[in-house]
Amino acid sequence: MKELTPKQKKFCQEYLKDFNASRAYKAAYKVKSDNQARANGSRLIANDNVSEYLSETMHQTKVNDILDINEVLDNLSHIAAGKPSQKIFKRVSYKGKKPKVEYDSVTTVTPEDQDQLKALELLGKYYKIFTDKVETQTDITVNIDPGDYDG
């Protein structure tokens, strides 16, 4: 893959915010016409190097968003212990053709009691702390033929 120009990188960064090629093109390049921005934005997305860069960046972002087992256990432990965490509340703007997410505020929240209990239950199951006792009744008949043991 060829190295992208600074303007192409800027276009890609802007495009990945809301997947609006026209807006991204206007942010990276000096252009006044919406039609020109739309046409050039579409053309730039079709560029092999830009397309490959966008694909790799989106794939890497997706890979980074997946929690591993230690992160899951760590998050469950924090919830079970009732540790406060920050939560981002977002607002969605429906102006234009595509909805745009606008981040509103960051607030500190403490897990609710039922969330703590659920986290404790999941941790207990993971560490096999809880075992189910099963009582069974069986009738076994054993037949021993003395001839089987003759030497």
Rank of each mutant, 00 (worst) to 15 (best):
L4C: 09
L4I: 04
K7H: 07
K7G: 00
K10P: 03
K10N: 05
K10F: 03
K17V: 14
D18V: 09
F19C: 05
F19W: 11
A21E: 12
S22L: 08
A24P: 09
K26C: 04
A28W: 12
Y29V: 04
V31S: 02
A39S: 09
G41R: 11
S42A: 13
R43I: 15
A46N: 10
S51C: 05
Y53N: 02
L54W: 06
L54F: 03
S55G: 12
T57P: 05
T61P: 03
D65P: 14
L67G: 01
D68Y: 00
D68A: 02
I69P: 06
N70F: 00
V72W: 03
L73P: 03
L73K: 13
N75F: 05
L76M: 06
A81S: 03
A81K: 00
P84Y: 02
K90L: 12
K95C: 10
K100S: 12
Y103R: 14
S105W: 07
S105E: 06
V106W: 00
T107V: 15
T107Q: 09
T107R: 15
T108N: 08
V109T: 08
E112P: 03
Q114S: 10
L122M: 13
Y126H: 01
F130N: 04
T131N: 07
D132V: 15
I144F: 09
G147D: 11
D148P: 01
